[in-house]
């Protein structure tokens, strides 16, 4: 086998670098730029947009009752949550969000990212994460759905729609005293 000459090495290296740069550029182009979001602590604007899309898919407006994730900006709450998490967790969360964003490309082989899917396709794709063959996808699904369920249903604007009367201590304290 011929040894790799310096020239051949440079050509191969240059080609690989160009391909990698092209792939990164292609992915960035596919994802598209997200509008600036002020006051984020951990998430990038693109990650914020992706997480907001996940939240909107998981808890859409309408259906059984009007409020949805978009009414409470759960993506910002997630960013605030991550701000108090250890660095490794922040990093892992960012990777997980990016994986969801490129999920349609990686797992369904469609040249589109999650944020750019229409709502029905987002729901079908996100639901697929809960039952995916890859354990990592299922873990990400449960991690995000736990956070979204906890924060959404803890919101007082949701309570009337699920027939929850609110914290009982205040309710009992405000209850008129029974006649002797």
């Amino acid at each position: 086998m011929n040894p790799v000459t310096r020239r051949r090495f440079l050509v191969l290296g240059g080609t690989a670098t160009a391909l990698a740069a092209g792939a990164v550029g292609g992915l960035a182009w596919l994802r598209g730029a997200a509008p600036d979001v002020a006051g984020l602590h951990v998430l990038t604007a693109e990650q914020y947009r992706t997480f907001a899309a996940i939240a909107r898919t998981h808890l859409p407006r309408g259906g059984a009752f009007p409020p949805g994730a978009d009414d409470f900006d759960l993506a910002r709450m997630f960013d605030g949550y991550l701000a108090d998490q250890p660095t490794t967790d922040r990093h892992d969360a960012g990777l997980a969000i990016n994986l969801v964003e490129f999920g349609p490309l990686l797992f369904d082989h469609h040249a589109v990212t999650f944020s750019n899917l229409p709502p029905d396709a987002q729901l079908a794709h996100w639901s697929g994460w809960g039952t995916a063959q890859q354990q990592t996808r299922r873990e990400i699904f449960w991690s995000f759905s736990r956070f979204l369920g906890l924060t959404f249903y803890d919101h007082e604007a949701v309570w009337p729609h699920i027939h929850y009367p609110g914290p009982s201590f205040a309710r009992l304290a405000s209850r008129p005293a029974e006649a002797p």
């Binding site: 898919t57 249903y153 803890d154 027939h163």
Partner: peptide, 23 residues
């Protein structure tokens, strides 16, 4: 409600429909 909602692993309108019957 939050902790119960966190266990509902069903996205979309179906998950909300289940939680709407919380009582």
């Amino acid at each position: 409600p939050g902790v119960l909602g966190s266990l509902v692993g069903q996205p979309g309108a179906a998950g909300k429909a289940l939680m709407a019957q919380l009582d």
